[in-house]
Computed example of a mutant assay.
Amino acid sequence: MHSRLYGVGLTITICILAACSGPAVSPPVAASAIPTPSLAKAWQGQLLIGAAVDEKNIKSQGELIANQFSSVVAENAMKPMATEPREGEFHFEAADAIVRFAQSHDMAIRGHTLLWHLHTPDWMWQGRNGQPADRNLVLARLKRHIETEVGHYKGQVYVWDVVNEIIDEKQADCLRNDKWHQVVGPDYVDEAFRYAHAADPAARLFINEYSTTEPAKQRCLIRVVQGLQARGVPINGIGHQMHISVFYPRVEEIDQTLTAFARLGLENQITEIDMSLYKWKDNRLYDTRENLLALQARRYGDIMRMIHNHPDVTAVTWWGVTDASTWLNQDAPADHHDQPLLFDAQGQPKGAFWAVFNAARR
């Protein structure tokens, strides 16, 4: 109170001396000019803090990304459709730009993804003379694709999501009944890991999956992983996507999930985290945005503090940088504006940012 009165008196005095001909004090510093402490530095030595990026945002938000994150993953630029759109025609330009950006800022690089039932070009399934491709042809193409891409980034990408979203708990063998399974058979998973390991023996190799906290899905994923381990397939870890909500899953469920895979001797990474203000496929807000954003901050803080109990977790990666470009708004109604990330649409830190920052060990 005394300092405020002193400030008022000082302002009056300055005004008199200057004949009130101009502003008595300097204008306040704009919020955007106030330095924001770095998440990457706060969590240094504890976790890699990552973000999914593309060619556009490393140009428009490069300073923010380099300051706040210690790891990046290409949102789409390393997927098969992007890197080999036509058979034998490889394009790494977009991914290379991301790798150069990361290397220039001493950031780790995740590779995402070598095999997926989506973003796979049609030529993979086309055989000779208009016939469907057979098992041997598809495996030969997969081998060449993985050898070429992993080889291109050998020693630069430290971890690969070798296979993405392969689990279907409704199937007898727990694997998605997609073209990979239909044409090659269930051992396509084994072969993909072996091809990747041969191309870069030092790279860490992961299965990346969503909804790993759901009991049936989790049991199936454990079953598949144990089969890989029993067959001597080189697998190092599980990527848990964690596209979650302010309403679910419970932190205890995430804790249990990480523990279950750590018991298998595997590394855990949270690879695509964002936290919606909505329930899945439900356009209703169940509270005010202010209250939901406060809940989001508390939940992010609780999750990150829980992770301190998991030395098996080596990285947490947000699926995007700011709320302006989240994938959750791509097909959403105009009034269904989601805000799932740590920075708002203007690139300013939200309550969620501060919760994650404060959860780091000091």
Rank of each mutant, 00 (worst) to 15 (best):
I65R: 06
G265Y: 03
R141N: 05
N358T: 11
V233I: 15
H91G: 09
P85F: 02
G237S: 07
K179G: 02
S276Q: 05
H181I: 07
A203L: 03
G185Q: 06
E165D: 07
L39R: 07
D200L: 01
G130Q: 04
A140W: 07
V157Y: 08
H336T: 08
H240D: 09
L47D: 06
T326G: 05
D54V: 11
W354P: 02
L341R: 03
V138P: 01
A51S: 12
A334R: 14
A360G: 03
L5H: 12
F206L: 15
H337N: 11
A133F: 05
P80L: 11
I273D: 06
G62A: 11
Y248T: 15
D161Y: 00
L221M: 15
T288R: 09
M124A: 05
A74D: 06
L264K: 04
H197V: 03
A95C: 06
G45K: 05
E149P: 04
L17E: 10
L139I: 08
V29P: 02
V183K: 03
K170F: 06
P333W: 01
F247W: 13
D190K: 05
A30E: 14
G232S: 01
A94L: 12
P23I: 12
W116N: 01
V189E: 00
D168S: 07
Q229K: 15
A315M: 11
A108F: 09
G351Q: 14
Q171V: 11
F206V: 10
E84H: 03
A19N: 13
A297W: 04
T113Y: 00
V251I: 13
I207F: 02
P80E: 04
D274L: 01
D344N: 15
S245Q: 12
H117G: 00
I238K: 04
L293Y: 02
E149R: 15
A332N: 09
D168R: 01
R305A: 07
E191A: 14
L139H: 01
R128K: 14
Q182H: 12
D134K: 11
H240P: 04
T11F: 08
L139A: 03
E55C: 09
G22A: 13
H308W: 02
K59Q: 12
A360K: 05
M107F: 07
D54Y: 13
L293E: 15
N268W: 09
Q256S: 12
A77C: 07
D287C: 02
F261T: 04
L266T: 08
L115Q: 05
E253V: 07
Y278F: 13
M81I: 11
T322I: 02
V163K: 00
R263C: 07
D255P: 04
Q346G: 11
A24I: 09
A196R: 05
R284W: 10
A352G: 05
S32R: 15
P28S: 09
T213M: 10
W43G: 06
V184T: 02
P249H: 06
P186K: 15
G50M: 04
L47H: 10
G155H: 08
H105R: 13
E214Q: 12
R194N: 04
D173F: 07
E84N: 09
C174L: 09
F343T: 08
C220M: 02
A334C: 07
F69L: 08
A352S: 13
R4L: 14
T120D: 00
D274P: 00
T212S: 10
D335I: 07
